[in-house]
Write a protein that binds this DNA or RNA. Sequence first.
DNA 1: AGCCAGGACAAGT
DNA 2: ACTTGTCATGGC
Length: 274
Amino acid sequence: MVVTGQEIDPGIIFNCGQAFRFRENDGRFCGVANGKYLEVWKTNEGMCAAPVCREDRWMWEKYFDLHLDYQKVLREFEGDEILEKSFEEGKGMRLLNQDPFETVISFIISANNNVKRIQKIIEEICSGYGTKIGERLYAFPTPAQLAAATEEQLREIGCGYRAPYIRETATRVAKGETDLNAIKEMEYSKAKEALIRLPGVGPKVADCILLFSMEKKDAFPKDVWMKRVLKILYHIEVKNEKEMTRFVRERFGPYAGVAQQYLFYYARKNKMIG
DNA sequence: AGCCAGGACAAGT
DNA sequence: ACTTGTCATGGC
């Protein structure tokens, strides 16, 4: 599969904390998503992917959010020099449309955790409970598969205090008590309310789920990095989540989540701390 | 060695 | 409603 006509850079896409299962190997990014192995690399024209069969093509186009014109999104932020610079440095960024259940579990794990460990735990979960799809390749477990894990088993692979959250959330989804597909169809605020009812899912994790797997481009995960960005780049000191929400909504509008992802990448790339 | 990690949660004002 | 301490674990 060849993608041309728009900037797309897997090196940026997979190094900005939205997906945890892709590794760089000799310039190629390899991983499993939607139960299938995927290998992509950047070219002069755009991006190449192999192997992709014809019937999966639309799925991967959706995965990489190719239906959204990011140049058009950038125009929404015309005049904001900080965002214009962030878009420049993060050229080729895309907001992935990932599987909702995988994203829910992944970001429950992400709470108060570091990326290396998040990746390690997720791989343990996949190899331990997911369907084997190839040599050392595993799909992310289905809700039913993961619900079969005991809290003790989850602790053994390093989930720590998140073990009961993961187990309970997987169980609710497996039983159909929580319907992620239905939540995906809700409007932003209703969907967020529904997600927060899940154990281990708070405001920040909910926004990550909404932005990275439910096509809610107005979802804006509020974390320490965004607090730093607002303080250092926008010279705004927000006291709490509510203040940040208000500022973000009126400043960035319906594509706030896209802005967030570029700002996040920019801030981390430039080691913006303090 | 000790601090930190893209927070969530419950108990306490 | 807002603020604070605690929560496993291992990376750095």
